[in-house]
Design a protein around this nucleic acid. Structure first.
Lengths: 206, 206
DNA sequence: CGTCGCCTTGAATTCATTCAAACCCCGTGG
DNA sequence: CCACGGGGTTTGAATGAATTCAAGGCGACG
């Protein structure tokens, strides 16, 4: 159920999919076999809309937690786009926000140190889950492994573990099982050098 | 002329622009003031098409070398898109390729070590310049500073310098002034763990 | 009750940064 | 014509952040 590839690099899919439940990641592998998660996708997102206009996949989409998705044929999507330019524009916009998130990830991985990076990604996850109603009282249910977090942050599992400990020690988060509780949201944002602008949320859930 | 911001984070521009000459970078700054270049744009590219559908800029666009650009009003572009769905689709496709490049950059910065990372970015630059006819005999004229390369790779200037030296020592590249010569293209691609797929070039210039 | 996956811990190592200084090329002005 | 600066490159040494390796613990599940 977890780490299941829905689409693979090199594929030429005729379907896109929408996330109904769980967490999906777009992933790439280096020649050395190291995995990088390049973005998360939460309920409501359509991760691989780019397949509509790019014939060959340049990344994989895998489940990071148990998940449910719904598939949609490309030809159906295309005819919807042709007939309803507003929807086409909305799809386009959605892919542009994905790109904005990728940009932020490059910055996060390239220029922030591990502790800040960790806090930042938690902020993003919480914001995005909140905007689709998956957060209650700053508590997010994210049954993602520390290894996966490492793949998203470009860090080793061991170091992810230490950074999480430090965030707990600082009183910024608490974890019980798969739940992450943002105990000090303002502090977490500060620690993560986090600014929601890049998410382009209509209601800046903050 | 260099390091000139054409557009700034937070702006709500009414123009997009096309690169006519030179190298443009999309950049972001962390709270600590560190710069990350999240992508390059070469002649023919339209870097900030996303401004068409996202009202506020989440990154800057700066010149990395002396450059010439041409501006285009958003309302003009929008009416072109409305009247010519084929052009709209081409624009959309172009932004999707940008996103694919961002994904690769996340991977490059997150999971490849400095030497490989450096080789990889040179491969990308050379491929993209070649596809728009800016390369003769594997020689690229890229008057970009090592500091800028560092900002693109998430590395310090000093380390960029050392990695370039190593690439020279291995006989993969030669540099004279601002010219980079890929002396051993196959070797450089191997060293950079480089696969052109993500560039989605129609004529895989390789 | 044993096993498997995931989390945690410590110590040694490595990769990359930082700091500081020297160098080089090139354009400018005395 | 040469001294002067300035931006960019190069070098070495010391430091630091994160990885790797290896082992142990913890909890869920068959």
């Amino acid at each position: 159920m977890v780490n299941h590839d829905l689409v693979r690099e090199g594929d030429q899919p005729v379907y896109s999919f929408v996330v109904l439940e769980g967490l999906i990641g777009s992933t790439k592998y280096t020649g050395e076999g190291k995995r990088q998660i390049t973005s998360f996708f939460v309920a409501g997102d359509i991760p691989d809309l780019h397949g509509l206009h790019l014939s060959v996949m340049d990344c994989n989409f895998s489940t990071l937690t148990p998940a449910r998705v719904g598939f949609m044929r490309h030809d159906a999507l295309r005819s919807i786009c042709d007939q309803h330019p507003r929807i086409a524009a909305a799809f386009w916009r959605s892919t542009l926000i994905d790109a904005a998130i990728y940009r932020e990830w490059v910055t996060n991985v390239g220029r922030r140190e591990a502790y800040t990076r960790m806090a930042h990604i938690l902020c993003e996850l919480i914001c995005r889950m909140r905007s689709v109603g998956r957060i209650e009282d700053h508590v997010a249910d994210i049954p993602i492994t520390q290894a996966a977090l490492g793949d998203a942050l470009g860090l080793s599992t061991v170091h992810v573990n230490r950074m999480l400990q430090e965030l707990r020690r600082e009183g910024l988060i608490a974890t019980t099982g798969s739940r992450v509780h943002a105990r000090d949201w303002a502090g977490l944002k500060r620690a993560g050098d986090f600014d929601t602008t890049y998410l382009h949320q209509k209601t800046p859930a903050d």
